[in-house]
Design a protein around this nucleic acid. Sequence first.
DNA 1: GTAGCAACCGGACCGACGGTCCGCTTATTG
DNA 2: CAATAAGCGGACCGTCGGTCCGGTTGCTAC
Lengths: 168, 168
Amino acid sequence: MERADAARNRAALLAAATDLIRERGIDAVSIDDVAASAGVGKGTVFRRFGDKAGLIQAVVDSTAASWHQAASLEFRTAGEFAGQLFDHVLASLPLVIAVERTSVRSCEGNFQLTVDRLARVVGSTFNAHALLAVLRGEQIAFLLDQGMTADEIRAGVISLADTLSAGV
Amino acid sequence: MERADAARNRAALLAAATDLIRERGIDAVSIDDVAASAGVGKGTVFRRFGDKAGLIQAVVDSTAASWHQAASLEFRTAGEFAGQLFDHVLASLPLVIAVERTSVRSCEGNFQLTVDRLARVVGSTFNAHALLAVLRGEQIAFLLDQGMTADEIRAGVISLADTLSAGV
DNA sequence: GTAGCAACCGGACCGACGGTCCGCTTATTG
DNA sequence: CAATAAGCGGACCGTCGGTCCGGTTGCTAC
């Protein structure tokens, strides 16, 4: 059982980390920032979450009932999958980028599952990875930065998914 | 005119950096490592190359007559382009990953040019970016890590490029 | 209520890193 | 050979992720 003060600190840290990452991006957020913003000592962060990656993972887990849904979602067509994942990524871009930079993709567990299911729809494991590569936070942020609109990217992603499915 | 000792040091630093990055990957190579390995002081690295990104850029520029060729290559079909760029990336994976991590893609100058030319062949700017995303060093390293062979990836990339071209 | 204990806390501390600075050295030129 | 500017190296700095430990506090058993 977690002590009451510990639970309070965990919640404060998660909230602080989520806000800071959302507004500044992971690169501009240090652990000290998060600790100070949550009003706790630095040691507390590491006792709760182990390391920076653990904190980010916890943030991600906490901010989304929809998170694991988005990755392991049931879908009929590749286009449907692409559209839904895109919306999810776009809505939490800084968080997605943070987790991409800190965790190893293959460790996600249901990531493999998603790849396999997707592979069946788009014809090959390679194509599944290709589609997921285009849906990465950093890729989408880059395209937005290049001046593409979210709608254009969304349409492109779905079109790509459909094209890949069509070849099956 | 560059002094003789300066030129010697520049060459030694480039060689040391190239070797270290190739064998360890950029993440395990610090500026101090490069300086020590080249037998010069740390300050010399920064006077020559400005910062870490500058050093990596210089390494990349020096190691490839084929480098800018690969990116701005003339090509007839998207598949041809994909195959050639893949071979180039695969041959210098750690270097490619290093430059991806340090430089901003859009600054590359002829990157824009490549995107535009490619866009004409694969139907849209979005598709051009998608193809390039799949050809990034980190993506290819990830797929290799997943157990895919280089041949499989090469085939996948070319097939993807051809599929995109076919829809035009 | 209170005593005792384990869990918890915070911030001083550490090593590594990218980057700066400056007093000394050395290649170059006339 | 003398003068000078370019170059040199490594001590130094601020920041970051991560560790440690002496003091504190929430919980429980009596």
